[in-house]
């Protein structure tokens, strides 16, 4: 089972609620993904942060745990204000914390992130910080009180998959007791499987599902990718080797096979 701040979940896929062709397709995709946690954006769109009641109703119908995020926030103050707004609106102390440094790459501002996380944790929030794959940043977030750390695989919406595998692996090795989620940059179910094979506890997806030609089918494909990767991790992957290693004994192999 997967644990986020003492709540347990069976699904290891977290899904976003933005960019779908219609709310009905969003609902279908979330159901097909099997996700039990759905991220929702507070800012970014509506003036004053007020998304329509009709849209919220469609999300509530899904009977999922809502993880509000501070997407689009560019400063510590902005992120903290948005988090407080989200707590009131959704009645949850959970917050996916994003502090964005750069508009083009949506790169996390890791310095601001640590500062905002500290403020919010002191205020009773349970923080899910979106960060880079840098170990020192992850350690500072854990020191600040984060029990979940969410490094990117690649920039948000880039669909490039894991571009720094060694660093992500190092994070897993060095933070064995922290819930680690790969957030952002995944484009294919194989990317999600790879993250799970590395021992990550979960992955978070939005664009790769919402912008697929068939989002509902793609949600199902990611669900399978996540399950395959997790099962493989639990089963224990074999180590890669430099040379071929036969899986059957070679002694007694007829020479016309041995020389082929």
């Amino acid at each position: 089972m997967l644990t986020f701040y003492d709540k347990t979940f069976s699904s290891r896929l977290l899904i976003g609620s933005a960019l779908y062709p219609s709310p009905a397709i969003m609902q279908g995709a979330i159901r097909a993904s099997g996700a039990q946690i759905v991220t929702v954006s507070l800012r970014r769109e509506a003036a004053g942060g007020k998304t329509g009641d009709a849209f919220w109703k469609l999300i509530r119908e899904l009977d999922v745990t809502v993880l509000p995020n501070t997407a689009g926030c560019r400063s510590v103050r902005d992120a903290v204000t948005t988090a407080k707004l989200a707590r009131e609106l959704f009645g949850t102390s959970w917050i996916k914390l994003e502090v964005i440094a750069d508009n083009d790459t949506l790169q996390p501002d890791v310095v601001g992130l640590i500062e905002a996380a500290t403020i919010l944790i002191n205020d009773g929030f349970e923080v899910f910080p979106y960060c880079t794959e840098d170990l020192s940043v992850a350690m500072r977030l854990v020191e600040a009180g984060c029990k979940v750390v969410m490094p990117w695989a690649a920039p948000i919406g880039s669909a490039r998959g894991i571009i720094n595998r060694d660093s992500l692996k190092l994070l897993r090795d060095r933070l064995p007791d922290v819930t680690l989620v790969v957030d952002a940059g995944l484009g294919a179910p194989s990317h999600a499987a790879e993250a799970m094979e590395l021992g990550y506890d979960a992955v978070l997806l939005n664009t790769a599902i919402a912008k697929a030609a068939d989002p509902v089918a793609m949600a199902g494909a990611f669900r399978q990718g996540v399950e395959a990767g997790r099962t493989a991790y639990e089963a224990g992957l074999m180590e890669a080797r430099d040379f071929a290693s036969p899986s059957t004994p070679v002694i007694g192999t007829p020479f016309w096979h041995a020389v082929s």
């Binding site: 769109e45 007020k50 009709a54 849209f55």
Partner: peptide, 11 residues
């Protein structure tokens, strides 16, 4: 935008 307010936001 999934909202039912009126007017145009700065963004």
């Amino acid at each position: 935008i999934e909202a039912e307010d009126t007017g145009v936001s700065v963004r």
